[in-house]
């Protein structure tokens, strides 16, 4: 496999291989917290932060502890525990410095732990055999990609509030259709660069 520069991976993770729209990871909070741009942005930032930190930490742990001792099969547990710890830390941080964001994010803040995008990124970087730098850029890129999409969706949904939508499609229905169309749009980027 040819070597991709971290920068390439960074941009690829945002646009061509967006974690949300091409892999459909992290849909749960994407559907629920995309009602307001402000909160969506807050959650997006939190996810980006967690993704970047955890991809770095998980990389270190995997290659310094798990692999040398031959216990790679433990990676699922170890990764998720580490993610949980980082999220806890983040939760304290937000509670201290922005009570409004803390209440708006509510349960979705601790639930970042089980946001599949986070574990997904950590597992992808192992499978794709990225270097440390590549991994960190991949994590940060994926997070920014997630942020971009959820903010875009929140923008659309804020406008949808004033539109007449058939009752059966209101809520999750219309959001899923929109994310499908958005996904098709993002597929358009995929000719530029390919990461697996």
């Amino acid at each position: 496999m040819e070597y991709l520069s971290p920068i390439t991976i960074f941009f690829a993770a945002i646009f061509t291989s967006n974690i949300l729209l091409t892999y459909f990871l992290g849909m749960c909070s994407f559907l629920s917290v995309s009602k307001q741009i402000k909160t969506a942005f807050g959650l997006g930032l939190a996810v980006t932060f967690v993704l970047t930190i955890t991809s770095a930490l998980n990389y270190i742990i995997y290659y310094t502890l798990l692999q040398p001792f031959g216990i790679e099969y433990l990676r699922y547990i170890v990764f998720i525990v580490l993610v949980a710890a980082v999220v806890q830390l983040l939760e304290m941080f937000i509670q201290r410095f922005s009570e409004v964001l803390y209440i708006n994010l509510g349960i979705f803040l601790p639930l970042i732990t089980v946001n599949c995008a986070i574990l997904g990124v950590s597992l992808f970087m192992i499978i794709r055999e990225y270097t440390f730098l590549q991994s960190v850029f991949f994590g940060a890129g994926s997070g920014l990609g997630w942020l971009l999409v959820i903010v875009a969706m929140a923008g659309i949904r804020e406008r949808l509030n004033e539109q007449k939508i058939p009752p059966a499609l209101r809520g999750a229905g219309i959001v899923l259709i929109i994310s499908g169309i958005m996904a098709m749009g993002f597929v358009g980027f995929s000719g530029i660069v390919q990461i697996q």
Binding site: I71, I77, V78, A85, L89, F93, R96
Partner: peptide, 22 residues
């Protein structure tokens, strides 16, 4: 041992962080 070690370290870290932040 490894799992306990990792978890223990993280827990310790969080307790310190809580003292500091909250």
């Amino acid at each position: 041992a490894l799992l306990c070690g990792i978890n223990g370290l993280l827990a310790l870290f969080l307790i310190i962080a809580e003292r500091f932040f909250l």
